[in-house]
Design a protein around this nucleic acid. Structure first.
Length: 944
RNA sequence: GCUCGAAUGGUGGAAUGGUAGACACGAGGGACUUAAAAUCCCUUGACCUUUACCGGUUGUGCGGGUUCGAGUCCCGCUUCGAGCACCA
């Protein structure tokens, strides 16, 4: 009988949907397993063949786990807020909600054809009020919390306020933007605005002044990669560095926990390393420097306290608040000019163009150990955002300080024996220290490091600094707080209103605050974000939501926050929402959360290593602190599937003609390669007629063929429209069916590796699927299943497969499973096996990979229930015992001959006493064999 | 510059330290067929030897090392890819 994949696949997809086969509920009597894919942003281009790779892999795992008896949660949804829909709206006026819904429908159509076991009943969309309710809720919780460094967790801000009222800032060890110092009396005397400002210093979601790339013309903040040479990429408008009040999340408070958590989860080492890098923990010393002839003092951060005797100048970041205080009056003009110049440059430009620049402030600091005067400079190689924005410069042992010193002719004082600093600095943290001032010298202050190793010297200096109260040991992190405001329309509105300019939360009972309709998606004429167009919304909603309408009498200021949240807001806790997606009372019920706990297997691209995967870990830790999430790390195992790249095809046009020459002959001509649509090329052979019809200009094209064919060239490139190398899964399914597509995507190569989509190999997988199908039918197309007892070889073949596929799936080695299926089907076909028992095992093993055909064949085998409700076959090792085992006998390292030794069928042991033990040395025959090395189940080398 | 990966036939890729190249594609040959499609069988790393069978040499980016035995482990390179990058 013919394998009609289209009918079979439609039949089963319909049946699964009608019967709710993949609906899942919390069931305390069964073990749970939570499989999750990073949900997609539904783009207008639809899915290409690379998108489903991870979904297929996770679906295989989910189906496998289900057959193993687990209650599997395998949900899918959409990250629906995003820039493309908004930009499309600006161009066309089409509401982003409309385009997004269209795109989602298209995605769903495409996904449904692939035969996933998603529980669509649990779908979430981040742009729906029922969903973003909980994004807004979490934001409010963060606003109402601070991070207690002693307890190492987030706490209600009310506790902090109570502390301020009773004791002021004394005894507070909280994550903060800057160090504040006030008494209870002072706090109680502050007005509301002052109190609000102070609390912002501690809140986990806070408003802060941050440096941003501001584009006046576009009316928005731009990311660094949207700015080139001081102008916006889009439009070419000038961009300036500007301090702006923005909502931020105090992610940095969680730095240490984010770092420690990495040791508890099963992620790839490379992605953990990326995150460690991003968090950037560095342990060092903060030291206080007094300013000469002044009461002023400032703090620097260094990891090389040992180099204190090599300090020959200090450097401040241009943005540092210290600059104004430390600039001498006669240097003010030059300093101002320098600062002005620096301000115009974006951070990116600063990094790209590393010319040494700087200016002398006119002030001197006093080295706390030697009492020496040290000139204070200002330069943009010091960053305001890291450490204290000020450094002690040791040109001999830091390459950046070295470059600066060389450029401005400052002293370079080496501290390590035998190092040569005439050409470059000696940065390595190794060697023996020298050049400390002698103990009897003025300024030695009793610390002599000479003769110590760098490591010892760092420790000694730290100890000294601590004992003499010159500073303290400090851990710094590179991780910055996340800027959480966007001047956009298509995002979650902030549940925030302003009362005389003081931000306040809309009552929780009034959430969600819904996004209004607007007519114009650009910023307003007055420079407000797009939501500024929704004047009525901004006032009326506020008055609806806030009981006291008298709060909004001042109509010169919008009472609602007009910024929206960034893309990562909605994707930070969606895995929790899937557990209980329709709950209107809370993000997730404690019962559901307690059952599903965390994601057991998370699949997604590695491009989210420093974005989503940090933010959602932070978000979850925050929720965990308040008991809203039961597990501290949300994703216990992470697999990063590789990207599927495009495989482009080229034709070669002879210059200035309309003649195209085949690949093998192109070197005889002067040709230009031209991308050709991969859909009219098959196995690199061009469909010449389709090519002529492709574009009008090729209508009259001539061809120089080889062997009667036009052979195209190829290259691996990103899959994109402009390369004409996009392959749509629908087209593949139309031609081969979903089961073949699924098999082939897995067969293509290791899951975590990037690889090009090469349509050439798909025939092999299709052939395999058909071969499987044909095993169930005789020559006349009638079902031909036998109830005879399986023979030994059949049992052996199928149990080998059980063992292989089980371990492959557990190890995410899906490509080798597909090979194993092919081998097994070939073996069984050769044996003309049509035994019901064997085939039943076979289709169950294949079902996670090719669910439709498996269901159909399962039915043909006479089962009433779906294959999803069957169980995973178990391997019985007794069928795998070899009859005999071959040993190679080596002589001086060369294989001389091989011998077969019989094996005991029940014990699996070799029936030769002399070979009974593993890896033993034995003497077989006093004359010739000296040593026997036994490798179990494999080969035995007998060295003569 | 730093960190992490990777390197195996014409191609995608297999190989708990134990017969390298499974499986698949492509290619070549053959069977069936009026023909095509489909299907099936054989060959397929390179080189040498042989009429043929048999047999041999060499071979996993490069150079060393450990081992009876290395694609695999260790040391030192080369190249490619990814990420971070003035982080004191």
């Amino acid at each position: 009988m013919e394998y009609k994949f289209k009918e079979i696949e439609q039949k089963w997809q319909k049946r699964w949907a009608d019967n709710g086969t993949y609906r899942v509920n919390e069931d305390e009597s069964r073990r749970k397993f939570y499989v999750l894919n990073m949900f997609p942003y539904p783009s207008g281009a639809g899915l290409h063949v690379g998108h489903p790779l991870g979904y297929i892999a996770s679906d295989i795992y989910a189906r496998y786990k289900r057959l193993c008896g687990y209650n599997v949660l395998n949900p899918m949804g959409y990250d629906a807020y995003g820039l493309p829909a908004e930009q499309y709206a600006i161009q066309t006026g089409q509401h982003p909600a409309v385009t997004t819904a269209q795109n989602i429908n298209r995605y769903r159509e495409q996904l449904d054809k692939i035969g996933f076991s998603f529980d669509w009943n649990r779908e979430v969309r981040t742009c729906e009020p029922g969903y973003y309710h909980w994004t807004q809720w979490a934001f409010q919780k963060m606003f109402n919390s601070y991070y207690d460094n002693d307890l190492n967790k987030a706490q209600p801000i009310a506790d902090l306020i109570r502390h301020f009222e009773q004791k002021g800032s004394d005894g507070i060890n909280a994550a903060q933007s800057e160090e504040l110092d006030f008494t209870a009396g002072e706090w109680n005397s502050y007005d509301e605005r002052r109190k609000s400002d102070i609390l912002m210093n501690y809140r986990i979601a806070y408003q802060g002044e941050t440096m941003v790339n501001w584009c006046q013309e576009l009316g928005t903040v731009l990311a660094n990669d949207e700015v080139v040479e001081g102008v916006s990429v889009r439009g070419g408008f000038p961009v300036e560095q500007k301090k702006m009040r923005q909502w931020c999340l105090r992610v940095s408070a969680y730095s240490q926990r984010l770092l420690d958590g990495l040791d508890t989860i099963d992620w790839s080492e490379s992605i953990k390393e990326t995150q460690r890098n991003w968090i950037g923990r560095s342990e060092g010393t903060e030291m206080v420097f007094h300013v000469k002839d002044s009461d002023f003092k400032f703090t620097i951060f260094t990891t090389r306290a040992d180099t204190i005797f090599g300090v020959t100048f200090m450097v401040l970041a241009p943005e540092s608040e210290l600059v104004a205080a430390l600039t001498a009056s006669d240097r003010k003009k030059e300093v101002d000019e320098y600062i002005d110049k620096v301000r115009k440059r974006t951070e990116r430009e600063r990094i790209a163009d590393r010319k040494v620049t700087g200016v002398f402030s006119g002030s001197y600091a006093i080295n706390p150990l030697t009492g020496e005067d040290v000139p204070i400079w200002i330069s943009d190689y010091v960053l305001a955002g890291y450490g204290t924005g000020a450094i002690m410069a040791v040109p001999a042992h830091d390459s950046r300080d070295y470059a600066f010193a060389k450029h401005f002719g400052l002293e370079i004082r080496p501290l390590i024996e035998g190092c040569d600093v005439s050409e470059e600095s000696f940065d390595a943290k190794e060697g023996i220290m020298m050049n400390s001032p002698r103990p009897d010298q003025a300024g030695s202050a009793g610390l002599v490091l000479n003769g110590l190793t760098v490591k010892e010297a760092i420790a000694a200096t730290k100890k000294y600094v601590k004992e003499h109260k010159l500073g303290k040991i400090k851990v710094n992190y590179r991780l910055r707080d996340a800027i959480f405001s966007r001047q956009r329309y298509w995002g979650e509105p902030f549940p925030v209103y302003y009362d005389n300019g003081i931000p306040k939360m809309i009552p929780e009972s009034c959430l969600p605050l819904e996004l209004p309709e607007i007519k114009e998606y650009r910023p307003t004429a007055t420079g407000e974000p797009p939501l500024g167009h929704a004047v009525k919304w901004a006032f009326d909603t506020a008055s609806d939501k806030i009981v006291d309408k008298s709060l909004i009498d001042n109509k010169t200021v919008f009472p609602l926050e007009l910024n929206t949240m960034p893309g990562f807001a909605g994707s930070s806790a969606y895995y929790l929402r899937y557990m209980d997606p329709h709950n209107g009372k809370c993000l997730v019920s404690p019962e559901a959360d307690n059952y599903w706990k965390c994601v057991d297997l998370y699949l997604g691209g590695s491009e989210h290593a420093t974005g989503h995967l940090i933010y959602s870990r932070f978000w979850n830790k925050f929720l965990y602190d308040f008991g809203y999430s039961t597990v501290e790390e949300p994703f216990s195992k992470l697999i990063n599937q590789g990207m599927i790249q495009g495989r482009s095809n080229f034709v070669y046009r002879i210059k200035d003609t309309n003649t195209f020459v085949s690949l093998g002959l192109k070197d005889n001509y002067d040709t230009t390669p031209i991308h050709v649509d991969v859909n009219i090329v098959s196995n690199d052979i061009l469909d010449v007629e389709a090519f002529k019809a492709w574009r009008p200009e090729y209508n009259t094209a001539d061809f120089i063929l080889e062997d009667g064919k036009y052979v195209c060239g190829w290259a691996v490139e990103k899959m994109s429209k402009s390369m004409f190398n996009v392959v749509n899964p629908d087209v593949v399914i139309e031609k081969y069916g979903a089961d073949t597509l699924r098999m082939y995507e897995m067969f293509l190569g290791p899951l975590e590796q990037s690889k090009p989509w090469d349509t050439n190999g798909i025939d092999g997988c299709h052939r395999f699927v058909r071969k499987l199908w044909n095993m169930f039918f005789d020559r006349n197309g009638n079902v031909c299943i036998s109830d005879e007892e399986p023979v030994k070889d059949e049992l052996k073949s199928i149990h080998k497969l059980i063992r292989k596929v089980t371990s492959d799936i557990e190890g995410f080695s899906f490509n080798t499973s597909v090979s194993a299926f092919m081998i097994c089907v070939n073996e069984l076909s050769a044996l003309k096996c049509n035994k019901r028992e064997i085939l039943g095992i076979l289709v169950r093993l294949i079902s996670p990979f090719a669910p439709h055909i498996s269901e159909e064949l399962w039915e043909i085998l006479g089962h009433n229930s779906t294959i999803c409700d069957s169980n995973w076959p178990e391997c019985d090792e007794k069928y795998l015992v070899e009859d005999n085992i071959t040993y190679s006998i080596s002589f001086n390292g060369k294989t001389r001959f091989t011998m077969d030794f019989p094996m005991d069928a029940t014990s699996g042991q070799v029936q030769e006493a002399v070979l009974a033990n593993d890896r033993t040395q034995s003497y077989i025959d006093g004359k010739t064999i000296r040593k026997v090395i036994v490798v179990p189940r494999k080969i035995v080398n007998i060295v003569l």
